[in-house]
Lab assay of single mutants.
Amino acid sequence: NITNLCPFDEVFNATRFASVYAWNRKRISNCVADYSVLYNFAPFFAFKCYGVSPTKLNDLCFTNVYADSFVIRGNEVSQIAPGQTGNIADYNYKLPDDFTGCVIAWNSNKLDSKVGGNYNYLYRLFRKSNLKPFERDISTEIYQAGNKPCNGVAGFNCYFPLRSYGFRPTYGVGHQPYRVVVLSFELLHAPATVCGPKKST
């Protein structure tokens, strides 16, 4: 009989979020998941679920829940969905086509923008091939755009693969920082350890 609540607040209220190319993952297990707390949290810009209804989450049990978190621009949030393409979905964070879970995003301009620009948040701009679902690539190898080998030196046709967002408070909404948490639900042939409040007695 599990009684402790799942530590969703640790994920959602973290002081610093990860850059999207180096997205953070927390495994959540052996706890009671009260999703209504999240669902009623006012400032969400997006709360979209795939393969599961957000209002039914509290009735369900899962083997594991993974909480992935990172920061992207407002106009990139739409790429955090199954079957998407674009710089983020291709080179930074890719969801599987059969994704079961929820994508939760909110504007973090007050936290993550600075006058003069916040350059701490990076994304991958160049990559030889697209990421596989949930693949994480933190390499900083110089990207070779031409035929000539770069030998690890940036220059003509040789690019550092990461780019900084440089968030400023005055940017338009599409270019403002958004914090994103992706909850993915794993249902294995194993005992369920993460259940909603109704199922955990």
Rank of each mutant, 00 (worst) to 15 (best):
P169C: 06
D59R: 09
T63G: 09
R163F: 08
A190W: 08
D98M: 06
C6R: 02
L125C: 13
I2E: 13
N92F: 01
D137L: 00
Y119D: 15
A18E: 09
R127S: 06
A42W: 05
K48S: 07
A22D: 11
K56W: 02
A105D: 00
R27N: 13
T140F: 08
N118K: 08
F160Y: 14
C158W: 05
C31A: 06
S69L: 02
F8E: 03
C158L: 04
N58V: 08
K48A: 06
Y91K: 06
Y143H: 13
I104Q: 00
T15A: 08
T193M: 11
P149Y: 09
P54M: 14
R16H: 15
A46P: 03
Y39W: 14
W106A: 01
G83W: 03
A190P: 12
K56E: 14
S69R: 02
L162G: 01
G146E: 09
Y39I: 09
L60E: 07
I80T: 03
Y121R: 03
E10N: 06
G74Q: 10
F134H: 10
F70A: 02
S108W: 01
T140H: 12
F167Y: 05
D97C: 06
C31L: 05
N107V: 04
Q176K: 02
R127E: 04
N1T: 09
S29K: 09
N147I: 11
G101N: 00
I138D: 13
F99Y: 03
G174Y: 09
P96R: 00
Y165K: 04
C195R: 08
G174K: 11
V11G: 02
G174T: 12
R16Y: 11
R16K: 14
K94G: 01
F17V: 04
R124V: 03
Y50T: 01
A22M: 10
I104H: 00
P82W: 00
C6Q: 04
N13P: 00
D68H: 02
L187E: 10
N1P: 10
L5G: 10
G152I: 06
F47R: 01
C61S: 11
R124S: 03
Y178V: 15
T170W: 13
P133L: 01
G86V: 05
L5S: 11
R127W: 02
S19P: 14
L188S: 15
G51P: 00
N4K: 13
F17K: 02
F44V: 09
E10R: 07
A190S: 13
F12S: 02
L125H: 15
D112F: 00
D90R: 11
I72W: 00
T15Y: 00
V11D: 03
L187S: 15
G83E: 06
L111K: 11
Y171E: 15
N147Q: 14
N87Y: 15
C150D: 06
N147C: 10
P133S: 07
N130A: 13
V194D: 12
Y93Q: 01
L95D: 01
D34S: 05
P82S: 02
R124Q: 04
T15Q: 08
P177F: 04
I88C: 01
K132G: 09
A42C: 03
C49A: 00
V32L: 09
C150G: 05
Y123S: 13
T140R: 12
T201G: 14
R27D: 09
F8I: 07
K26T: 15
Y93L: 03
V77W: 02
V65S: 04
E141Y: 07
K26Y: 06
I104C: 05
N151C: 08
P161I: 02
T63V: 10
N1M: 07
R124E: 04
C102G: 00
L38I: 15
L162N: 03
R124P: 03
D137M: 00
I88D: 02
I28M: 15
S19A: 07
